[in-house]
C-alpha cells in the first residue's frame, strides 16, 4: 500500500535561516509517529508544512494521494486529508463547543445544520464532553478546550491527525485527559503525527519515534529500541534534559 504521507527532500527556509533540511519521510496508515527534539529543531514547522500552513521552500509533498504542486491540487485539498490540533487550542471564541465542531462539516463538507449538529454531538461525546456542548471556550478548562479542538479536527473526517504539542499549554493535572483521548484514537487505528515532550506517552503509544535536531531527522525507528539504547550523544543528551 502506498504511504499516506510522503516527503522527499523537503526544505523550509525562513529568510536566510534553514528550518528544515532534506526531510525524507513516509508515514503509512495506522502509524502513530511521535516527533521529539530540542526546541527550534523544526518539529512544529514540519507539521505545519505537512498541511501547507507553511509553504515549503523545496522538495516534494504528497498527502493522501494529493501532490502539492499538481495543477489540480489546491492547498485546501491537502488540508482536508489532515486534521490539526494546536498547542494553544485555537478554538473560535465566538462559537460554542458544538458550533466549533460543526463549522468544518458545514463549510468544508457542505453538511446540513442537522447533520453537522448530530456529528458534533457524537464527537463531543467521544471526547467526553457531551454535557459541555453549549459552553463557550472561555467557560471551559484548558483540557476541555483541547478536547473540543480534537473533536473539531476529527469532524472533517481526516485521514491523518497532526498534534502540535497538544499538552504543552496545559497544567500538569489537565494533561492526562487530553492524552487519554489521543491514546483512544491511536487504539482505534487513527494515523497520527504527534510533536510532544511527553516521553512516557511516546514510549506507551508511539509505534515509531522520530528525533529531530537542527532541521534534520536524526533518528527514525522503534521507540523502545531508541529509548533503551540511544544511538547518538545528541539524543542521549536530549533525553537527559527532558527527563529531569
Amino acid at each position: 500500500m502506498s504511504p499516506l504521507i510522503t516527503c522527499r527532500k523537503l526544505h523550509k527556509r525562513f529568510g536566510a535561516i534553514e528550518v528544515l533540511r532534506d526531510i525524507n519521510l513516509e508515514v503509512h496508515t495506522g502509524e502513530v509517529v511521535v516527533i521529539v527534539g530540542p526546541s527550534g529543531s523544526g518539529k512544529s514547522t514540519l507539521l505545519r508544512c505537512l498541511n501547507v500552513l507553511e509553504p515549503i521552500s523545496g522538495g516534494e509533498l504528497e498527502v493522501g494521494g494529493k501532490r502539492l504542486g499538481d495543477r489540480r491540487t489546491r492547498k485546501r485539498d491537502i488540508r482536508r486529508e489532515t486534521g490539526m490540533v494546536f498547542q494553544q487550542f485555537n478554538l473560535f471564541p465566538h462559537m460554542t463547543a458544538r458550533e466549533n465542531v460543526m463549522l468544518g462539516p458545514r463549510k468544508v463538507r457542505r453538511q446540513s445544520r442537522r447533520e453537522a449538529a448530530a456529528l458534533a454531538d457524537r464527537l463531543l461525546d467521544r471526547v467526553g464532553l457531551a454535557d459541555r456542548s453549549h459552553h463557550y471556550p472561555s467557560e471551559l478548562s484548558g483540557g476541555q478546550q483541547q478536547r473540543v479542538a480534537i473533536a473539531r479536527a476529527l469532524a472533517v473526517n481526516p485521514r491523518v491527525m497532526l498534534f502540535d504539542e497538544p499538552t504543552s499549554a496545559l497544567d500538569p493535572e489537565l494533561r492526562g485527559e487530553v492524552l487519554q483521548v489521543m491514546q483512544g484514537l491511536a487504539a482505534e487505528g487513527m494515523t497520527m503525527l504527534i510533536v510532544t515532550h511527553e516521553m512516557r506517552f511516546a514510549a506507551d503509544v508511539a509505534s515509531r519515534l522520530i528525533f529531530m535536531d537542527e532541521g534534520r531527522i536524526l533518528h527514525d525507528g522503534d521507540p523502545k529500541v531508541l529509548f533503551e539504547s540511544p544511538p547518538s550523544d545528541r539524543f542521549r543528551d536530549f533525553l537527559r534534559h527532558v527527563q529531569t
Binding site: 500552513l53 485555537n90 463549510k107 473539531r152 472533517v156
Partner: peptide, 21 residues
C-alpha cells in the same frame, strides 16, 4: 489571533470562508 485563522484553514476552509465566519 493568527492561530484562529490557521485553525480555520487547517479544517480545509477557503480563505474567504475563514474571513467571513
Amino acid at each position: 489571533d493568527k492561530g484562529l485563522q490557521d485553525a480555520g484553514l487547517a479544517l480545509g476552509m477557503s480563505y474567504p470562508q475563514v474571513l467571513l465566519s
